[in-house]
């Protein structure tokens, strides 16, 4: 096992959420859930981050930001779409400015549905994402080895 799963740092971006999911994400960091148990730190900086948490659907304004943020994260990295909005666009899907879920712009590894997604499921989603992170890491070293 590589160390990346022991110290996943996250960056959290609010695409166009109603703020419900964001509050739940932050709730994960509170004493009740204490994400830091898993070595998870909220960095707020793509260059330090391994896990990208996106809440809310993607609109014209946030499209570029999500894309840039993702591009600036060094490999290996995973994306977790949190809440039904981030997964598919949710109730805002039909809005004139909404493009849809996060996967319209960047590849998403884990979808955490719910409106709002509960902290338990967010944590579950992140932990699942760690498995994918590990895989990507192995792939990366193999590629590097060749």
């Amino acid at each position: 096992m590589s160390y990346i799963t022991k110290s996943p740092w996250i960056i959290h971006y609010d695409g166009s959420s109603c703020n419900g999911c964001d509050i739940e994400v932050l709730a994960c960091l509170t004493p009740l859930y204490d994400l830091e148990r898993f070595g998870i730190v909220n960095t707020g900086n793509p260059k330090h981050a391994d896990v990208f948490l996106v809440t809310g659907g993607i609109n014209e304004q946030s499209r570029e930001v999500v894309k840039n943020t993702y591009d600036q994260m060094p490999d290996p990295k995973v994306v977790v779409a949190i809440g039904i909005c981030a997964t598919t666009g949710g109730v805002f899907r039909e809005c004139y400015n909404i493009m849809g879920g996060v996967d319209k712009v960047i590849p998403v590894d884990v979808y955490v549905p719910g409106c709002a997604a509960r902290p338990e499921s967010i944590i579950d989603g992140v932990v699942r994402a760690l498995g994918i992170l590990e895989e990507k890491r192995t792939k990366m070293t193999e590629k590097g080895g060749k």
Binding site: I4, K6, E36, D75
Partner: peptide
């Protein structure tokens, strides 16, 4: 710190994990 905030906190060796992880990442 975690205890002061009523949390459990990360493993004691967490800083080491962090460093090792950083060296596993892409050189960007």
């Amino acid at each position: 710190t975690a205890r002061m905030q009523g949390r459990v906190g990360p493993p004691v060796l967490q800083p080491l994990y962090d460093v090792f992880k950083l060296f596993e990442k892409e050189k960007a």
